[in-house]
Structure formats: structure tokens, C-alpha cells
Design a binder for these strands. Structure first.
Length: 362
DNA sequence: AAGAATGGCAACCGCTCATGA
DNA sequence: ATCATGAGCGGTTGCCATTCT
């Protein structure tokens, strides 16, 4: 009662729009602009309800629509935003110029959702169907292997998690700022995934400090200088399965675990998953913190972690290992050139809570 | 080659919210 | 305060093209 009556009215066309109808609507809106949709059909000479006209304009006729395939960056942005916003398609679409909520919704339902599921990610929660991280932590706790000096966090936040948190703590405008400089470009992503030569050239790494990071910059720098290799240690220490206190460094434990791993796709075994988890964790941290020199304004690529299988990760790590060398810290404006060290020379600085503290607040 | 199954997508439906009388 | 109306949103449907058997 009192509901939209367009479906009740007689002689109103439904279904696909003909080119003639499109022409009429486009012509009308071009001249008179968007106003009262309920009066549009009559004025434009269309046998449609206003609602139908509005939808056709918004989803198809609007001149500012982008059309075509979604770019990798758009895909990643959708996934990231969906993790935070859920099925709020209109809000998601607001962050993607030229894309409609309907388009994004369809893309999600027909492509992205399936892809995540294929990768063992629950599209509703954006978390693995089986949460290995929690299991590992529990296992470590059971055997008293958790690093005693590292009270919190017990595990590092994934980039997804801390992007989510960052978003929750800031507004959407800020979010774009936060995302800038935390990213890979499509080109660098492909380099990472396909390159046979070292994918990481640490001397080219810039840490882009967005507005969000500015307050932390000094603290961050200090930690960089005080810790012998706090960034690297962070990568390794952030992997919960390495958070134990035997005599090996995180790095060597990590290496040996990966070297023993020879799975090729997916996570069919616990070790597969472990390797993938660690590697992707490492890469996503790297991806989250670094961007290529001169490309500081890229869009976040959180999907990277899911597209890297265990073997790929191993290759990346080895490549990375072989190319790492000592460098210098140079600070200027918004960027820091990070130094890098061979994995073998990593000092065992596992108890540096300050390192975690900095990242925890990112 | 043909029918079935599947995927992608445009459009519809029903609901909520905002606004104004 | 209540009601009518329009706009917007998200879930769902159904068409069509493509792929599979």
C-alpha cells in the first residue's frame, strides 16, 4: 500500500532498454538534467516508470561511466573496501569513480567472491576458512615457546587488518591518504610475480610516509636507527610461527622452513599453508610498507598476498635474500631510503618491543 | 551439432530513509 | 505526529552469450 506503483501501472515497459528508449532518455537528461525522476518518463516520452529511467541513467547512460574491465587496482580496492564496509555497494562505488554500485556488486558476486573462495578466503569475513594463525599461537603457548619478552601484540596485524583498523579510525578521505604509499603498482606487482631476477631491490625502496604516518615519523626513524635491522626483524618476527625462543634467528628459521617446502599450488597441507601464510605475511608487510621509488602514490594492492603461492614466495624470498645488502638511511621530505641486510647477518633482536610498538600503531 | 549448464550482467523488486505537506 | 512521495540501496531475477558435454 502506497508503495511504488510503477509495476502496477499499465502499459509500462519492462526489461531491456531499446536504443530508441536510450536515445530519448539521454536526450532528455542532457537537456534538462537530473531532476524529478517520476516526471521524466512522461516528459521524455517513455513508457517506463521513473525508477526504471533513473536506474538506466545511473547504470548505463551516464556519460561519466568508465565501462570496461576492472583494473587490478580497482579490484584490490574493492576487496579492501568490502572487508571494511561489507555489502555497502554504494559506499564502495563512491570510492571508485566511474563505477556503479550495481557494476561492483555484480563483479563481486560473479568474480571476486569466487576467487577469494578459491584462495581459501571466506569472502564474508576476508579471513582464511581455517585460521592457522590462531592455531599456531595456541600451539606455541602450549609448549611455552612464545617469545617471553614480547608481550604484545601476540601476532602482527595483517595488512588487511590494520588497513581496516586504520579506516575505522579515520574517515574515508583519510583512507585514501593512508593507502597511498602503502602499495604496489600493477607493474611492480607483475614484477614480483613473474620476475626471474631479483624482484626486490632494497636500495630502491622508499618508505612513503603519508599524512597518516607523519606523527610517527620521528619515532619510526629512531627505531630504524636504534635497532640494527628493525624492519627486517619485524618481517620475520611478525610471523607467529617463528615467535619462539630457541637459538636460531627468525630469519634462518624462516628460510629453512621455506626451503623444505616444495608445494606448488594452494595450501593442501599444514606446511603449505604455513609457508604461504608466512611468505604472504612477509610480502604483504613489504608491500604495505614499501613502494617503488617515484611511485609513492600508488593504490594499495592487498590482493598480492593471495596471488602468491608457496613456491612463488620461496622464490621471492631467495631473490630478496640474494639482493639484500647493507645501505644507508637517508631521510628527506616524505621518504626514507631503507637499508637492507643479507638475511644471514640479521641480528637476533627478537626482544625489541619498540619495533612492534611502532608498527602496532600504524 | 545440439541441448544443458554456467557465467555475466542489466534490470527489477521491495525495503528504508528523507523530505515536505 | 502522520502520511505521501521520491530517491536510493541491496538482494534477486531472468535474459543472453558462452562453454561444456
Amino acid at each position: 500500500m502506497g508503495r511504488h506503483s510503477c509495476s502496477l501501472k499499465q502499459k509500462l515497459r519492462k526489461g531491456l532498454w531499446s536504443p530508441e528508449e536510450d536515445e530519448k532518455l539521454f536526450h532528455y537528461i542532457t537537456i534538462f538534467g537530473v531532476g524529478c525522476w517520476s516526471s521524466v518518463p512522461k516528459l521524455a516520452g517513455l513508457q517506463r516508470c521513473g525508477k526504471s529511467c533513473r536506474l538506466r541513467w545511473i547504470n548505463y547512460l551516464r556519460p561519466d561511466l568508465k565501462r570496461g574491465m576492472f583494473s587490478q587496482q580497482e579490484e584490490n580496492l574493492i576487496i579492501t573496501l568490502h572487508e571494511v564496509l561489507g555489502n555497502r555497494w554504494a559506499q564502495i562505488a563512491a570510492q571508485l569513480p566511474g563505477r556503479t554500485d550495481n557494476e561492483i556488486k555484480n563483479f563481486w558476486n560473479s568474480c571476486l567472491k569466487k576467487r577469494l573462495m578459491k584462495q581459501g578466503i571466506d569472502p564474508a569475513t576476508h579471513k582464511p576458512f581455517f585460521n592457522i594463525t590462531e592455531s599456531v599461537i595456541k600451539e606455541n603457548e602450549k609448549s611455552s615457546m612464545l617469545m617471553p619478552t614480547l608481550s604484545q601484540p601476540q601476532r602482527a596485524l595483517s595488512s588487511h587488518e590494520y588497513y581496516s583498523q586504520a579506516l575505522l579510525m579515520s574517515d574515508l578521505n583519510n583512507y585514501h591518504c593512508n593507502m597511498n604509499g602503502l602499495s604496489f603498482t600493477e607493474a611492480s606487482r607483475k614484477t614480483l610475480l613473474n620476475s626471474s631476477k631479483p624482484a626486490f631491490d632494497p636500495l630502491c625502496y622508499n618508505l612513503s610516509v603519508s599524512n597518516y604516518y607523519q606523527p610517527r615519523l620521528r619515532e619510526f626513524e629512531q627505531n630504524l636507527f636504534l635497532g640494527s635491522d628493525s624492519i627486517s626483524n619485524y618481517f620475520f618476527d611478525s610471523m607467529p610461527c617463528l615467535n619462539n625462543s630457541d637459538n636460531n634467528s627468525s630469519a634462518s628459521k624462516f628460510s629453512s622452513l621455506l626451503v623444505n617446502e616444495n608445494s606448488s599450488n594452494g595450501c593442501s597441507t599444514m606446511n603449505d599453508y604455513l609457508a604461504c601464510e608466512m611468505s604472504s605475511n612477509m610480502i604483504e608487510n613489504a608491500g604495505g610498507l614499501f613502494s617503488w621509488e617515484g611511485e609513492e602514490n600508488n593504490v594499495l594492492d592487498p590482493l598480492l598476498q593471495f596471488e602468491v603461492n608457496a613456491v612463488k614466495c620461496e622464490e621471492l624470498l631467495i631473490n630478496k635474500t640474494s639482493s639484500w645488502q647493507e645501505g644507508q638511511f637517508l631521510t628527506h621530505n616524505n621518504s626514507i631510503n631503507l637499508s637492507a641486510y643479507p638475511l644471514t647477518s640479521l641480528s637476533e633482536d627478537l626482544s625489541n618491543e619498540a619495533n612492534f610498538d611502532v608498527f602496532q600503531h600504524l
